[in-house]
């Protein structure tokens, strides 16, 4: 499987999962799909048959509302059966609308309230550094999530403790819950902010797999790395792109059909 294939499958699963679940956040799943695909398929050391292996790289989805993307990636990588994805958000399922670790092999951390993942990843990274573990810790955040003060507490901490084994990837799709980020709470120079906090910060096209691969593999001898991945919210389904409605709406009927059709046209 190539990362392109995985990203396509994440999008395909995501549309089906949110449709079946009548659940929200498909646009976030579509914007983060390439980031998740590149990390799981090409960048991280993963052990689907031994999810707790000490050698694994750790992945934390801090923007927990895009959990369907991670569930889809885990299933496609072999952590659990893809059939299980159809239970997403259904009665009695462990596959909750926001990513949850309980009962789901491969999920490191349950999130859903924003601003939690980077701090926990920093703690994990610090413990691993002290133990001399050779793994890398990835936290994927949303740009809207960067409104949370706790993100910046963690950013201060990660620099101060020189967490060179920590990579934050920002899914910078320019939109948040009710509106564009810049109309909500101006982020201004997001990459510059991370640099000012002492991080090595790279900016890439968050749908360009080659660029993502290179950026996510970048480490610094002293600094944590932040990858600001410029993305399009709703990427891959024309009518969902940059449309705040699809932060909430679930694809049904003709919308579902059209979304699937558009994806089928670009099937890798």
């Amino acid at each position: 499987m190539t990362s392109k294939e995985l990203a396509w499958k994440i999008r395909r699963h995501g549309i089906e999962m949110t449709s079946l679940a009548k659940g929200s956040h498909i646009a976030s799943v579509l914007s983060v799909a390439d980031i998740v695909a590149v990390l799981y398929n090409d960048v991280m050391k993963i052990f689907p048959r031994d999810p707790a292996s000490d050698l694994r790289d750790r992945f934390i989805l801090s923007k927990g509302h895009a959990g369907a993307a991670v569930y889809a990636a885990l299933a496609e990588e072999g952590y659990f059966a893809t059939e299980l994805l159809r239970t997403h958000c259904q009665d009695g399922s462990f596959l909750s609308g926001h990513v949850s670790h309980k009962g789901v092999p491969g999920v490191e951390l349950s999130t859903g309230s924003l601003g939690h993942g980077l701090g926990v990843a920093a703690g994990m990274a610090l413990a691993a550094l002290r133990d001399g573990k050779q793994c890398q810790f990835y936290a994927v955040l949303g740009d809207g999530e960067c409104d949370e003060g706790s993100v910046w507490e963690a950013a201060l901490f990660a620099n101060h403790y020189r967490l060179r084994n920590l990579t934050a990837v920002i899914d910078h799709n320019k939109m948040q819950s009710l509106d564009y980020c810049e109309k909500t709470l101006e982020l201004l120079d997001l990459a510059g902010k991370w640099r000012a906090f002492g991080w090595r910060c790279l900016e890439v096209d968050g749908h360009d797999h080659e660029a993502l691969r290179e950026a996510c593999r970048t480490t610094d001898a002293e600094k944590p790395v932040c990858v600001v991945a410029h993305t399009v919210k709703g990427k891959g389904v024309s009518f969902m792109e940059n449309n705040i409605l699809w932060h909430y709406r679930d694809p049904q009927g003709e919308f579902y059909e059209q979304a699937i059709q558009e994806l089928e046209l670009v099937r890798p």
Partner: peptide, 25 residues
């Protein structure tokens, strides 16, 4: 090596503690 001053940020102190604990501490 086992004493950490997280600074005046209790949210991050607690998140970091959770992360370290999940790595076995």
């Amino acid at each position: 090596a086992r004493f950490i001053n997280a600074g005046i940020c209790e949210q991050n102190m607690t998140a970091v503690a959770a992360g370290m604990a999940l790595e076995g501490k």
